[in-house]
């Protein structure tokens, strides 16, 4: 049979090549990875693989790391995994190949890291986990885990609720918006929260669904929660963005957020703090993204071969509506 189009193969190949180059250049713009191996100029090279840019928290985290690297004189190779573990593994393998001095990353999910961490260990490159942990049994695969204690965040949120509702006579119905299924903050915040509210048998989680840490997800799930459950007293959202999405669903249902439904979230990004100050949220357990300076310190220490603790927590607090009003003007992210 005769071909319909008669373009010559080289012309087509050239077009594909041009397109691929375009993809390459755009991707290169997205990542500030400048390529090249580590130079022996005494400057520490840090390879960092970020989860993605799924929330305001995450972008603040990225900015903090980039700024701190510049300030500390560390050469940063940055990669955005776009929420995919395979991208992240690829990025880490690249760093190993490029023989960077230190690798740091925020794992997309908790499990499945043993192989690539082993490769890094064999290559003698220290690994620092930031923000999220991994479930590897072999703790020697990474030097330290720098980040928030998600269980603690969940517990702080739960403890505040227990305190608020200690006078409640009847049952208190709670709905929960989980983060991305399988992600450490989702698992841990859920766990910490559940542990804390166990203190009061009146507090009951009646529905729990994933909103993928996004506003659209939080909104869509909350809409159904509201329809399926006539009496919802409390919403616990694993991050501000899902809480912000849920706000719209609550308003649309004719309820007043912060009054009819008590809203507790985690993170304390600017939009969330604004909602808290406006009285739409009731409580936020902070999860600080500003771990850049701490990370650079650690990178220098592990590169110098110093011993570091296996677990380092970022400094964090909690906010009530009043505290939010005070803190808001100085909020950077």
């Amino acid at each position: 049979m005769r071909k319909m189009r008669t373009h010559s193969a080289p012309w087509r190949a050239a077009a594909v090549l041009a397109s691929v180059l375009l993809v390459g250049s755009v991707a290169a713009c997205g990542n500030s990875d400048t390529g090249g191996g580590s130079k022996d100029d005494g400057k520490i090279t840090l390879g960092f693989s970020q989860v993605g840019a799924e929330s305001g928290w995450r972008t603040a985290n990225t900015t903090s790391i980039k700024d701190a690297a510049t300030a500390a004189g560390i050469e940063l190779k940055f990669d955005d995994a776009q929420q995919k573990q395979e991208n992240q593994i690829k990025a880490i393998r690249n760093y190993i190949q490029q023989k960077v001095d230190v690798i740091a990353f925020s794992p997309v999910v908790e499990s499945g890291w043993d192989t690539v961490l082993k490769e890094a260990k064999d290559a003698d490159i220290p690994v620092i986990l930031t923000d999220r942990s991994v479930d590897s049994a072999d703790k020697s695969l990474y030097k330290t885990f720098l980040g928030s204690d998600f269980i603690k965040e969940g517990r702080l949120a739960g403890e505040w609720l227990v305190e608020q509702k200690k006078t409640a006579s009847g049952p208190v119905n709670i709905v929960e918006l989980q983060g991305t299924t399988g992600a450490a903050p989702a698992n841990d915040r859920k766990k910490g929260f559940a542990e804390a509210i166990a203190a009061n048998p009146n507090l009951k989680v009646i529905a729990s669904q994933t909103g993928d840490f996004t506003r659209a997800g939080g909104k869509q799930v909350m809409e159904q929660f509201l329809k399926a459950n006539p009496k919802i007293d409390v919403l616990f959202a694993h991050n501000d963005d899902m809480g912000l999405g849920a706000l719209e669903a609550i308003t649309a249902a004719g309820k007043v957020p912060g009054k009819d439904i008590t809203i507790i979230t985690v993170d304390a990004v600017k939009d969330g703090m604004q909602a808290l100050a406006d009285g739409k949220f009731n409580f936020i357990a902070e999860c600080s993204p500003l771990l850049g300076p701490q990370l650079m310190d650690l990178a220098k220490k592990v590169h110098a071969g110093e011993e570091v603790p296996a677990r380092i927590e970022t400094e964090e607090t909690t906010f009530t509506q009043e505290q939010a009003k005070e803190a808001l003007p100085n909020r950077k992210y």
């Binding site: 397109s19 691929v20 375009l22 993809v23 755009v26 991707a27 713009c29 997205g30 840019a53 929330s55 305001g56 972008t59 990225t62 955005d80 776009q82 506003r215 963005d241």
Partner: peptide
């Protein structure tokens, strides 16, 4: 052909938003 834009377009969108929401 469309895979090209599928991949590059995500990057472009993030470039426009500068990685922020």
């Amino acid at each position: 052909a469309t895979l090209i834009l599928m991949v590059a377009g995500r990057g472009l969108a993030q470039l426009i938003t500068q990685g922020q929401i």
